[in-house]
Design a protein around this nucleic acid. Structure first.
Length: 383
RNA sequence: GGCGAGGUAGCGAAGCGGUCAAACGCAGCAGACUGUAAAUCUGUCGCCCACGCGGCUUCGAAGGUUCAAAUCCUUCCCUCGCCA
């Protein structure tokens, strides 16, 4: 059911197609994040119009609310949220990192104190696999332990090695679910693939060790986790440069949680095929529009009477219809439409950047695109 | 006309002799955000600046008491409520 085909390459950059039970994903791909079964401020119709081919959901959040049993009874996540295209679910591994203050890690799994009602929950690698089987995502992630980039080497190593043990258990569980649908788990998507996750922080030797052991277990594909969590970008690039070539060539490579628009190009250049990041949607809600020239902070007073669209070169719905002045007004007034229009723009920009990257690889002009992109894009201000 | 309450920074609102350029909230200004506890969070928010436990001008107005007043006294101006 799951498949990956490389159509073109240019240097380390790959243009490919990932096949899943709910359709094909053109890579390099960006996946909007819809943690709780919704890409915030955006309707499924918007997502389809924007050309999103796959979105993310989150195991931990959907397990807490509304519950994976409920979603399984509704026919799985695709049916429940009325999204016909592919879905990837994160395992809750990121919550091990982001909710560090309310969780304890044991060898068995991660014990969470719910941020919703304080109740105690044990998320094990097996449980994370079961929940995702019930959600029926097309791609499930193994439960991993994502350490902060500031963590000591020994902490990063322990997290990495535990992630390997957990990956083995998660794989074993999935194989059993495929064989006999064990323990009353409703498998709503029998063609679900499972990705392993590489850890090891900023330490390249730990990354190597993680890759060897994880590939040894054997997954449909592999993700690089534990990056873009506070380390400087060039360190992140270095780790990707080191890790990507060590991953199997014939499987998609997914860089989790990255990044800024220029990160996408740089990491495609290093052999990454899939990305996800909350930046386009979160920053949209916080008044930052990402454009070909860099971030534009629409809430700044300088745009109060600016009649231009956020990005004059952009063809998204927002830029085709609305002025910076109006968008600033919507933000300042706290209108919900602000979040929607800003998110539409940011997602369009991300998805369009990926389209341009894919096209460039086909025509062998990716290096040119990469150069031109950096010439106009600045991480900082913007007009 | 009488009685009562009150006038504090853009707004609302604390303060009621010194540690007050004045709590707090809102609005404003700016920043952060990377597998979403986020339509959140942080900083700033009288004026000037060499940004420092720095200088200057403030708490309706004017005068006064005091070493010292947003805080006490006098007069005036203005709001709001009740009664005529």
């Amino acid at each position: 059911m799951f498949g990956f085909k490389i159509l073109n390459t240019e240097g380390a950059a790959r243009r490919g197609e990932v096949t899943t039970p709910h359709g094909v994903i053109q890579t390099p791909a960006f996946m909007p994040v819809g943690t709780r079964g919704a890409v915030k401020a955006i309707t499924q119709r918007d997502l389809e119009d924007l050309g999103a081919e796959i979105i993310l959901g989150n195991t931990y959040h959907l397990y807490l609310k509304p519950g994976d049993d409920l979603i399984a009874r509704a026919g799985g996540l695709h049916a429940f949220i009325a999204w016909p295209r592919p879905i990837l679910t994160d395992s809750g591994g990121y919550q091990v990192f982001s909710l560090a203050a309310m969780r304890k890690i044991r060898e068995e799994g991660a014990e969470f104190r719910s941020h919703i009602d304080g109740s105690l929950h044990l998320l094990t690698p097996e449980r994370a696999a079961d929940i995702q089987a019930q959600l029926g995502s097309d791609i499930a992630m193994v439960l991993d332990e994502c350490a902060a980039s500031s963590a000591d080497r020994s902490v990063a190593r322990d997290a990495m090695q535990r992630s390997i043990r957990w990956a083995g258990r998660a794989r074993e569980r999935l194989l059993r679910l495929r064989a006999d649908g064990a323990d009353g788990v409703i498998v709503t998507n029998p063609g679900q693939a499972q990705f392993g996750i590489i850890q090891g922080g900023v330490h390249t030797d730990l990354r190597t060790e993680s890759i060897q052991a994880t590939v040894e277990i054997g997954f449909e594909a592999y993700a690089i986790g534990g990056l873009s969590v506070g380390e400087p970008v060039d360190v992140m690039y270095d780790v990707v440069s080191h890790a990507a070539p060590l991953l199997p060539v014939d499987r998609p490579r997914y860089l989790m949680g990255t990044g800024m628009p220029d990160d996408l190009i740089e990491c495609v250049a290093r052999g990454i095929d899939m990305f996800d990041c909350v930046l386009p949607t979160r920053n949209a809600r916080n008044g930052q529009l990402l454009t070909s020239r860099g971030p534009l902070v629409i809430k700044n007073a300088r745009y109060a009477e600016d009649p231009l669209p956020p990005d004059p070169d952009c063809e998204c719905y927002t830029c085709r219809h609305f002025s910076r002045a109006y968008l600033r007004h919507l933000f300042m007034a706290g209108e919900m439409t602000s979040a929607t229009l800003n998110s539409i723009h940011n997602l369009y920009f991300y998805l369009d950047t990926m389209r341009r990257i894919r096209e460039a690889i086909v025509f062998g002009t990716f290096e040119k695109l990469r150069m031109e992109f950096h010439q106009t894009f600045s991480r900082h201000p913007q007009n």
